[in-house]
């Protein structure tokens, strides 16, 4: 297990290093600069500004400095917001994104598990078809389409919830969280249904029944845990999906989160924010996938005790 973790950590660092390098050089190669395009500066003024941001030095030196700062957790300064550190900007906007993401994930996965269980325990009934329909719709309809319709009906037409912005406390987080939850909901319900159907037809379920266990005991004491454990494996892709979703959802609902800032910085060519956020997202996802793998090893006794030959 220790050997496996070491290997995974090394891969994590290689991956992150490659992403950082690729991001840096791609940014360097991008057409247009925020300074030259955004302001009408004289060549001498431009030189001063470039010097301030270290843009006058040769690219390899800039790269070296960038990587060194990165190791310290410093993502540089924003071009757009004068003297604002990118790291600080990200940290400042972490809150709303975190609240939406975790609420969406918990809501989606919980309801998804329930729907999946119902579908598997009531196979080929109206319950099953209904929950399958919800899952298919949830997987198929992009979150931004779903979000816009939520906004239109719940916000504009009925006025139940705030249409947008982060001003009404928790209420502001409800609609965006629901919109984000659709993906995890659909994934979890489909996953749990498939797993449960397979588990319910397995020999050890027949054995449990032959012991005299009731239908409820069979479903929850024996089958549920076995169907639930593999769900951990889709948490990584789910987190990636939530991140993707957050870009558009925060945009639609004008939430001051990281995703909204990222989209804005793309529009305004704010390289250091794009780079910083890209690296932050990458690090987040890499860590999530790693944690999920380790977690799976911990909660599944088969892997936990055999030492993880994976």
């Amino acid at each position: 297990m220790a050997k496996y973790i070491t290997r995974r950590v090394i891969y994590m660092f290689i991956t992150f290093f490659l992403i950082a390098t690729a991001t840096f050089f791609l940014m360097k190669a991008l057409p247009g600069s925020p300074i030259s395009s955004a302001s009408k500066l004289s060549p001498s003024q431009l030189a001063i500004v470039e010097a301030k941001y270290g843009l006058d030095e040769p690219v390899p030196v800039q790269y070296g400095k960038y990587m060194l700062n990165l190791a310290k957790g410093d993502l540089g300064n924003s071009f757009q917001f004068k003297n604002a550190s990118v790291t600080e900007l990200i940290v400042k906007r972490l809150g709303p994104s975190f609240i939406l993401g975790s609420q969406g994930l918990i809501l989606g996965v919980t309801i998804g598990i329930m729907l999946g269980m119902i579908a598997a325990l009531r196979q080929n009934t109206i319950w099953d078809y209904g929950s399958t329909l919800i899952a298919i719709v949830g997987i198929s309809i992009p979150s931004f389409v779903f979000a816009t319709f939520l906004q239109y009906w719940l916000g504009v037409k009925w006025g139940i919830l705030p249409v947008a912005l982060w001003k009404d406390g928790w209420l502001s987080s409800v609609m965006p969280s629901i919109a984000l939850a659709m993906g995890p909901l659909a994934t979890a319900s489909r996953f749990i249904r498939t797993e449960m159907v397979e588990v319910l037809s397995s020999d050890y379920i027949t054995l449990a029944k032959s012991k005299g266990a009731s239908g409820f005991e069979v479903a929850f004491k024996h089958a549920f845990r076995n169907a639930l454990i593999p769900l951990v494996t889709v948490l990584g892709p789910l987190a990636a999906g939530l991140l993707t979703g957050s870009l558009v959802i925060e945009q639609i609902f004008a939430i001051p989160g990281i995703g909204e800032q990222f989209v804005k910085s793309i529009m305004s060519n704010d390289y250091s924010i794009i780079m910083g956020t890209t690296l932050f997202f990458s690090a987040f996802l890499i860590v999530v996938i790693f944690v999920v793998d380790i977690l799976y090893g911990i909660i599944d006794p088969r892997i936990r005790l055999s030492g993880g030959n994976n």
């Binding site: 791609l26 991140l243 890209t278 997202f281």
Partner: peptide
Amino acid sequence: ILIGIPTLVIVILMILF
């Protein structure tokens, strides 16, 4: 290594480029 790189990040970088 490639699979460790989030699709979203790489897609956005490529598009910017």
